[in-house]
Write a protein that binds this DNA or RNA. Structure first.
Length: 688
DNA sequence: GCGATCAGCT
DNA sequence: CACAGCTGATCGC
């Protein structure tokens, strides 16, 4: 649950996802998605009054969020004051103080967050730097790298602060099976049941919240059966969702709800009241989507667990796992990070300890490159060395290797058209409803489990998978058709053979339908456990089994807090050394990336680092035109000098009469190209 | 009567 | 295995 207070340090005159207290004075409001814990105060009388007297105050959100919000009569009073902004369309907003007339310009870009229909992250750009508010998100590894608008040219933007969804930011949530895996498991479970007879039905025991829609649409698509729900009017303008739902209780797939649903189910009654069809009693199983997570060392696991005679739990998560969060944040590599959520059983400090090392300020800025064949990741040095093996394989490549994965059709336009508010483009609305199709993946990629282990070994890895790693859980909306296109982590490591069988063999199938009403038991423990259950019908046994299943991570999570701080000295060194350098570079990077801002917007930057106005800028500002590769990579080189010399020591280049000795900076560039597997074309650099 | 908050329960 | 939200009790306006 979000505990974000609504205001960001850099832009305190706007409020995001909170609408009470201090936020009542905001010049503009932003809503990332339509979940109640992000809407506190949104329909309170105080805010209603504020709207009535401040006629220039608006709420900005995605078109889908607007639609969902206005479906509820309680929020109807917002109708004239909501401005929807298209996804991935940088939009300038004027923040006017109605009392003083003071005005501030800000550019906001909505990025798909993969959390629920309409959910977005907000990227704000203005005089106080670029900040990213993630809202709630679930993004697979590598997805940040595929977001065009997080980049300037080929490098990630210089982001001052990230306000981050840290719901699962704890090592015990190290890994959560991907959306595709989870969906696949559910599809097969449902298939094994509803194909038995028309009277075999499944009940999806979903909570009352947006976010399960892609499950419904995929089930409907797969089986040609519309999913029964209580209400669907909120989707009236989203045909991609609407067409897969029905209020006709005759469906074989139900996601309807009722306060006494569990009790009903116990008596073989669906929440909608159905008990039979054509006088033949229904045979019902329940599937409860729940988050299942796995620790670093967990070998494999099923995404479906049987919890009772006719009850199953299916893995499902709206939020990124620990390793997905770390992948995301380390790719963004901001100066600061602020957790929006304190996960249960941990503290703000602990979360910060985990996240800080992924930010610029505490990193060793000098990446270490070696010629191909010895390429090894530069380890990020943890302040606390809390979980030393966390990042054995999930950490991103060193900072300068962070290159955007090109999108298929769009090369990188240097400048995007900037919409100026207010503007509406309702046509594209249905594309961003948060569904995605899952059926185009090759079966072998639908592993029912992720094996952390192969890459978790102690051996050195040769990491040349570069920026396209990770599974390609498609982002809702614009990435529907790109799935499978990007190389996948699993492809490099998994065994092709056994996966499919292993995850499907125990699914209920019509051939195995014995006298039991219930599918064959197929939940099992992880490979190590001997508790693999057979077809017992004892509820308690099942439940205890699930206790041993997969959540073993719990045991090794017990507060890893204070391990020996062997690297403490190094850490403090790095901290001291890199900080001033970063400060110096902020203005440059801002200028470089704020291509959407009129020049005078950034020329009068009210930088908090006033002392840095003397930064030499002549050569720097040309980066935009002189090459897409440099802006971020330059940063470390400017100030870390040669104290950490090994970056070039193992790559001595003898000087020849006509060859100019490559600048360290250029060498760096060449290394990176090598690391990416690109050929090196020696080109004449402009002499500066 | 409404809102805010909390406990309890999925 | 904890997503997000409902219900009901209590207190205050």
């Amino acid at each position: 649950m979000s505990s974000f207070e609504g205001q960001m340090a850099e832009y305190p005159t706007i409020s995001v996802d909170r609408f009470d207290r201090e936020n009542l004075r905001a010049r503009a409001y932003f809503l990332s998605h339509c979940h109640k814990d992000h809407m506190k105060g949104l329909r309170a009388p105080a805010l209603k009054r504020r709207l009535e007297c401040s006629l220039k105050v608006y709420l900005y959100c995605s078109p889908v969020t607007k639609e969902l919000l206005l479906t509820s009569p309680k929020y109807r009073f917002w109708e004239k004051r909501i401005v929807s902004i298209e996804i991935e369309t940088p939009t300038q907003i004027s923040l006017v103080d109605e009392a003083s007339g003071e005005k501030e310009e800000i550019v906001v870009t909505l990025l798909p967050a993969g959390h629920c229909p309409g959910s977005v992250m907000f990227l704000f750009q203005g005089n106080n730097g670029t900040v990213l508010y993630t809202g709630d998100f679930r993004l697979a590894k590598g997805e940040a790298a595929r977001m065009e608008l997080l980049h300037s040219g080929a490098s990630v933007k210089d982001i001052q602060s990230v306000y981050l969804d840290t719901t699962f930011c704890h090592p015990k949530y190290y890994q959560i099976p991907s959306r595709e895996e989870c969906l696949r498991g559910i599809l097969e479970l449902v298939r094994g049941w509803i194909t038995r007879s028309p009277n075999h039905v499944v009940w999806l025991n979903c909570k009352a919240a947006y976010g399960y829609e892609y499950l419904f649409t995929n089930l409907s698509e797969e089986f040609g059966v519309q999913v029964h729900v209580n209400k669907l009017d909120m989707f009236r303008n989203m045909p991609d969702i609407l067409h897969h739902l029905t209020t006709d209780r005759g469906s074989q797939i139900h996601a309807c709800r009722h306060p006494k649903a569990e009790e009903y189910f116990h008596w073989n009654k669906l929440p909608c009241g159905m008990i039979s069809k054509n006088r033949i009693p229904l045979h019902t199983i329940s599937i409860k989507p729940s988050t299942m997570w796995f620790g670093e060392r967990t070998r494999k696991t099923n995404v479906i667990v049987r919890t009772g005679e006719s009850s199953y739990r299916a893995c499902f998560s709206f939020h990124s796992s620990y390793s997905e969060i770390k992948d995301f944040l380390s790719y963004i590599n901001p100066v600061n990070v602020y957790p929006n959520v304190i996960p249960m059983g941990t503290t703000l400090e602990k979360v910060k300890e985990i996240l800080k090392p992924l930010c610029r300020s505490s990193q060793n800025m000098e990446p270490k490159y070696k010629p191909l064949g010895k390429l090894k990741r530069a380890r990020i040095i943890h302040l606390d060395s809390e979980e030393d093996d966390d990042d054995l394989f999930d950490d991103p490549l060193p900072v300068p290797l962070r290159h955007k994965v090109p999108n298929q059709q769009t090369p990188h336009p240097e400048v995007l058209p900037m919409t100026v508010i207010p503007q509406n483009q309702p046509e594209k609305r249905t594309e961003s409803t948060g569904c995605f199709k899952a059926d185009s993946m090759p079966t072998c990629l639908w592993a029912n489990f992720i094996d952390c282990e192969e890459s978790n070994s102690e051996s050195e890895e040769l990491e040349i998978t570069a920026p396209a790693q990770g599974d390609t859980s498609p982002v809702p909306h614009h990435e529907q058709k790109t799935e499978g296109e990007v190389p996948q982590w699993e492809v490099f490591f998994k065994r092709n053979d056994e996966i499919t069988d292993d995850c499907l063999e125990n699914l209920p199938s019509s051939t195995e339908a014995g006298g039991s009403q219930s599918p064959k038991l197929f939940s099992d423990s992880d490979g190590e456990s001997t508790h693999i259950s057979s077809q017992t019908s004892s509820q308690s046994t099942h439940i205890s089994e699930q206790g041993s299943q997969g959540w073993d991570s719990q045991m090794d999570t017990v507060l890893l807090s204070s391990q020996e701080r062997k690297s403490g000295d190094i850490t403090s060194l790095n901290k001291g050394g890199s900080k001033p350098g970063i400060k110096e570079n902020i203005p440059i990077l801002q200028m470089e990336q704020n291509v959407f801002c009129p020049r005078d917007t950034y020329s009068d930057l009210k930088s908090r680092d006033q002392d840095v106005s003397t930064v030499p800028s002549a050569g720097e500002t040309t980066t935009l035109s002189s090459g897409k590769h440099m802006p971020q990579e330059k940063r470390p080189l400017n100030h870390s000098s040669n104290t950490d010399s090994q970056s070039s020591s193992d790559f001595e280049i003898p000087s020849t009469p006509e060859a100019e000795l490559p600048q360290q900076e250029h060498l760096q560039y060449l290394y990176k190209k090598l690391a990416r597997g690109e050929g090196i074309v020696i080109e004449k650099r402009k002499s500066s």
